[in-house]
Design a binder for these strands. Structure first.
Lengths: 260, 260
DNA sequence: CGTGTCGTTGAGCGCTTTCAACCCTGGTGG
DNA sequence: CCACCAGGGTTGAAAGCGCTCAACGACACG
């Protein structure tokens, strides 16, 4: 349902009385002191975004920290050919914009709501004031950025793989739980098109690779739900030009030891 | 020149008396208090690495912060097919390892000396103690990681470009100084092979793209020194399969408006 | 003058992209 | 209840681009 333009980005959906409870339950604010939460709840603004509405553009100014109350935001670098290189998908309780606010740098990506979303907007001045007056908070933020940097490097590693099969294998194996040796289930955290953009693939190639893995028996797929049958085999799968000729694949399956 | 194995990683090259002055001049320690510097100089160890010697392996433990006193370190993700995806080149006065030390996570890349190098090794306990006891230092580190995260995103943007020509163009334009509209000079900060690894290209492709840009008149190259003739033109260059057939390129140069 | 490192060039293959059409599902309104 | 539509996903055919392997050239060093 489209929202009237004037309604964008300034709706107040949660009554002030309940806002404190709501944000107190968000993962981002875990461990904050009561007085800090109260100040943030009093000073922060709420932002409502319709699906596909843009919060910021690459190169623009980002003068606030945002915390996702509900919905999902998509951070991506727009490429020639209308493709998107997805940097991060930000879900409920996660934050975005720390680096830009702290350094005053222009936003390095486009930010768009991938679903109808509800954000908390913490002004740059407010944010920096809270950090400055509480070393504990500064340290927490330091750990947050360290974690995000390592996450980004993991993405880089995935994208560095040469073939699509290797990329998808690396990506899926990220979700393997502790102790799950060979089999596990997972759910894709976004549209396949966005996952593809995260792996540096076109959605068509991503689709083909998944279909190939299903044919090989390495995974089983039903909508967004994926069951990995052979985690060890995934990493070593040979992408031998196989996902173009279904019939040639059938032969290969019979030649090689079946994975299922 | 090979160094005796026992000599690796424990040589003391700078007398204690001069160490304090030496590290005080490094960019990383800019703004540190005298007493902090003194403690670090007293407790840190010096590490000498021969060219191509490894400091840490991907997946291994990294239990110290390192600051480059001299030389250059190469951080990269090893790929099947013996290729390297270079994450970062760390030069004099720069540091590495913050995220791993702070989070206790395994090292996300291999670390190898790309030249004979001299490092300062600050133990994890020492490092965390200094951070814990000085909020100013914590805040400085926070800004450092924010900067590094944005730098990593810029690398991601470069690597996300579809064609090699676009990658190289993006990479070169990074070095454009303020106010330099169309022309500027720069020096490649490492071996071409490592730059290629940073762009997600093979060294052969990188070489071919540079040769193509020279033929087009977009740049001029002499060893590691590159002069960009037409910054605006670089970004819009069409990679039309041209760097495979030199004679076909010649025609294109005459058809299109010459860039030089 | 050998030797090793670094960079360049050539030929061929293979993977990914591109553009296109098609399928499938859920929501909507008559 | 069903026709219709939009969004998301799948599949096909063709072409482009980069990788691989190999050989060669340039240069510094001992």
């Amino acid at each position: 349902m489209p929202i009237a333009p004037g309604h964008y980005m300034n709706a107040l959906h949660i009554p002030i009385a309940h806002l404190l409870d709501t944000i107190g339950r968000l993962a981002y604010f875990k461990g904050w002191r009561a007085d800090q939460l109260a100040r943030v709840a009093a000073e922060a603004h709420q932002v409502a975004l319709a699906k596909n509405e843009r919060l910021a553009a690459k190169g623009g100014l980002l003068d606030a920290l945002y915390v996702v109350i509900s919905g999902q935001m998509r951070l991506f670098i727009p490429l020639p050919s209308n493709m998107e290189r997805v940097i991060r998908l930000v879900g409920q309780g996660e934050s975005l914009g720390e680096s830009c606010v702290l350094l005053g740098d222009p936003c390095p990506y486009d930010i768009i709501a991938s679903k109808a979303s509800h954000l908390l907007r913490i002004d740059a001045l407010t944010y920096r004031r809270e950090l400055r007056t509480d070393p504990v908070l500064t340290e927490r933020t330091l750990l947050l950025l360290a974690r995000r940097l390592l996450d980004t490097l993991r993405e880089t590693e995935i994208c560095a793989q040469r073939t699509g099969v290797q990329k998808v294998a690396c990506y899926l194996l990220q979700f393997r739980p502790q102790g799950a040796e060979t089999q596990f289930e997972m759910r894709l955290p976004a549209r396949k098109r966005d996952i593809a953009g995260q792996l540096g693939l076109s959605q068509e190639t991503f689709s083909r690779v998944l279909a190939f893995l299903v044919r090989q028996g390495a995974i089983h797929m039903k909508g967004n739900l994926i069951r990995v049958n052979n985690a060890a085999g995934l990493a070593t799968l040979n992408p031998t030009g196989c996902y173009r000729e279904p019939e040639a694949c059938e032969k290969l399956i019979q030649v090689n030891a079946p994975v299922g």
